[in-house]
Each structure stands twice: as structure tokens, then as C-alpha cells.
């Protein structure tokens, strides 16, 4: 599960970063947070969100827990683990570098 490339890698990174910033969130909230942060530009494919979350849970990057909301309904909230933080720290600079390189190429063109 260590490999993160392409779009899947970017989704993982977005989820990790969001959890880092916002703390504990359930699936829908993670999706909403990414959309808001990106100024409604990045819309997470809902169908891919939960498989990604479960995969990251299996890799122990995130930890899940059931909480009871004020409405009495149960929600499964996710939070970053130490391993997830480390993953974020190694992947984020890599992504930055790639993004920078891509924009440099685009500028020169």
C-alpha cells in the first residue's frame, strides 16, 4: 500500500491533509471539506472515497471509530495516525515538487 501515484495518490494526499487540518471527520465531512478548501474546484468522486478510506485504514494511516452524533445517529469518524502523519510528511513535498515542475513546464511552453 506504500505506493501512491497518479490520481489515487492525490486523493489519499487530500484526505490525509484534510484530516491533519480538521482533526476527526466522517466520510461526508471529509468530502465537503475538500470541496470547500479547493473553492469548489476539487470534487471527490464519492464512489472512490470509501474504498480509499478503507484502504488507508488497512494501511494504518487512519484510524476509524464509531461516534454517536447529537441527532442520535452513529457516524464513523476518521483520524490521522502517527503513521499517516509520516506518510503525509513524505508525500506532501513530493507532490509539491511535482506540481512545481508541472507548472514550470506549462509556463515555459
Amino acid at each position: 500500500m506504500g505506493k501512491t501515484d497518479g490520481m489515487q495518490g492525490s486523493l489519499d494526499l487530500l484526505v490525509l491533509k484534510t484530516l491533519r487540518r480538521e482533526g476527526r471527520l466522517h466520510g461526508y465531512a471529509i468530502m465537503s471539506a475538500i470541496r470547500e478548501r479547493s473553492g469548489d474546484v476539487l470534487r471527490v468522486e464519492e464512489g472512490s472515497l470509501y474504498p480509499a478510506l478503507h484502504r488507508m485504514e488497512e494501511a494504518s494511516w487512519v484510524r476509524a471509530e464509531w461516534v454517536t452524533k447529537d441527532s442520535g445517529r452513529r457516524a464513523r469518524v476518521y483520524e490521522l495516525t502517527a503513521k499517516g502523519k509520516k506518510q503525509l510528511e513524505t508525500e506532501e513535498p513530493k507532490w509539491q515538487a511535482v506540481a512545481k515542475a508541472v507548472s514550470r513546464v506549462l509556463r515555459e511552453a
Binding site: H26, G27, R74
Partner: peptide
């Protein structure tokens, strides 16, 4: 059951919105 419940919660949140 848990997986179903999580997905249902997601749908509920979407509908609430």
C-alpha cells in the same frame, strides 16, 4: 452491517444538504 451503516450515513448527510 457497519459498512452499510457508514454508507447510509453518507447518504443521509447528502440528503440533509
Amino acid at each position: 452491517r457497519e459498512i452499510d451503516e457508514e454508507l447510509q450515513a453518507h447518504l443521509d448527510a447528502a440528503i440533509e444538504e
